[in-house]
Write a protein that binds this DNA or RNA. Structure first.
Lengths: 111, 111
DNA sequence: CTTTTTTATAAGTCTGAACTTATATAACTA
DNA sequence: TAGTTATATAAGTTCAGACTTATAAAAAAG
């Protein structure tokens, strides 16, 4: 399964947004997702499994609980895929003058 | 439909990769996709419609042909969504020493 | 020690997106 | 002008993935 396939689901994207803010218990993730999407604990758990199996998240055991953390390695694949399109828009980062100048030149070429 | 939903399909991703290299006729896109994915002209055309309808591509008329071009505005939404995860990995751009140092500090905190 | 909590997984259900065939329409060609 | 090319859309089909209920197993609580 490709990284984009994983992110092609709104529940999984939302879970990753939550994890980007810090580690969470499975149960806490379930509570938020149930409220926002109205699906069951088992449904959320299945999404968590997809994330684990595809490298987007890790889970450590804490008694009967699982503590989930984001793993952003697959995000880098997404980021890399986007690279081919970045030439079409202005860099978002603060950059050296040469980078800024390069960005402006690209912009002019596209307009 | 969310931008990630659109990219959650391998055919559409491939079409966008092709368009990133430059404008293409519908028929040429169909030829490549038929060879790589084995689906019909109508199938490809439906994917092209999804891309048009969701702002990822534009089509201008040239006689009986349609010439497709990529529109990267929705990519920027993807890029923006990724922003929350970039703190977890090293910046790809050459950066000021402070940026590099900041990147390394983040990396250590995560390991 | 029994009951409760936590959460992953199994097994079953269902629907919409990805596919097909068919075709309409516009443009081109001979 | 008739036949061909190009391509979008309509209508129908199908199956994979997102969902449910049920439950097993581990840990915690009383």
């Amino acid at each position: 399964m490709h990284a984009f396939d994983v992110l092609g689901d709104p529940v999984r994207r939302r879970i990753l947004e939550l994890l980007a803010e810090g580690e969470l218990r499975s149960g806490d993730i379930v509570a938020v997702i149930q409220r926002e999407f109205g699906i069951t604990q088992a449904g959320v758990s299945q999404h968590l499994k997809v994330l684990r199996d595809n490298g987007f998240a890790t889970a450590r055991v804490d008694g009967p609980r699982r503590i989930y953390a984001v793993d952003t390695r697959p995000m880098q694949d997404i980021d890399a895929w986007l690279e081919r399109f970045r030439q079409f828009w202005e860099p978002k980062l603060s950059a050296l003058d040469t980078e800024i100048a390069r960005g402006r030149k690209q912009r002019r070429a596209d307009d």
